[in-house]
Write a protein that binds this DNA or RNA. Sequence first.
DNA 1: CCTACCGATCGGTAGG
DNA 2: CCTACCGATCGGTAGG
Lengths: 196, 196
Amino acid sequence: MPRIGRRERILEKSSQLFSKQGYHATTIRDISEACGMLSGSLYAHIQSKEDLLFEITDRGAELFLQSLRPIVDSRADPVDKLRRAMIAHIRVITDNLEAATVFFHEWKSLASERRRIIQQKRDRYERMWARLLSEGVESGAFRIVDEKFARLLILSAANGLYQWYRRSGDLTPEQVADRFTEILLSGLSDGKEEKR
Amino acid sequence: MPRIGRRERILEKSSQLFSKQGYHATTIRDISEACGMLSGSLYAHIQSKEDLLFEITDRGAELFLQSLRPIVDSRADPVDKLRRAMIAHIRVITDNLEAATVFFHEWKSLASERRRIIQQKRDRYERMWARLLSEGVESGAFRIVDEKFARLLILSAANGLYQWYRRSGDLTPEQVADRFTEILLSGLSDGKEEKR
DNA sequence: CCTACCGATCGGTAGG
DNA sequence: CCTACCGATCGGTAGG
């Protein structure tokens, strides 16, 4: 019987390797070596290489969904909701940098069936953000011309984090979220001109 | 002697395949088949598979650099410069969607030497943006707390475009650039609160 | 978890 | 640009 945690260790090493080299450039021998075993031995724990990719991306998708749900369902005012949603989103990325990188960068390498599952979860997540933004527009808190565009801009900017955020950097996740929402809410211009 | 344009056709097909499947998931046989020849024949035109990846990403880097340079060197006011830089950046992406996708997604698959070349061009491009933003801060046109953060946010948001922009969509590159700068300059909040 | 191995496919080459 | 091929490596399996 495999020791508890063995599989977790394999998933963690896989995340590291997939995030650094990419899924296709990582071999089953790379993974098994990182786990201190031979390639054949890996198959006592997994059924296929793609299983690893799916499990990493699916866990990532669930983290995003579960951290946003309570915020969307809450009764805070829209600006506060946006702030809290941003913190949650950024926290998922910064707390799971490698898995997040795999989630954003490698999910398209999944075969059609499992790819569809991840796609659906991504869609659900985007819809939660869409609701959050449209509530803010309806209540008059946000002035947004094109909601879909605003949503894509926000999520693109936030998702880009996995490419430049390093734990060793000087910004905590909360600082990142603060600066992020500050720019998104108030903009970069000096504020002397009237809002159009 | 190879027909003029043969090599260009190979690069174009490679861009399509690399952007859709990724570099490592695309085989030399995929590319040669798309070009209507057998795998061995491809090597009459290229020296290695990696040559293709390098040439695509390097051209992409040059497009970004050359389109931004005249704007940074001009004497327009900072807000106008930002607008024009944004349009230029977005135009490069929308006019070269597949190459841009490869540039953003696959450049890390290059071996160390060529990877460094691309990395340097990316750094140069980022420094041009840094200058553009700090000019705006010095002149008082922009109110930016953390310039590096603002730059990373802007470029992340703009680069995300390759993941969702489709030519078939209803937004022209100019519309995209307009909405983009509008949100970045003025923010999403209703503007009733004072700027802090 | 190891030993020993498999068929398939990979990037690339030689000779024409 | 094709024919014919190569050594290396891939993901994965059987039996212990």
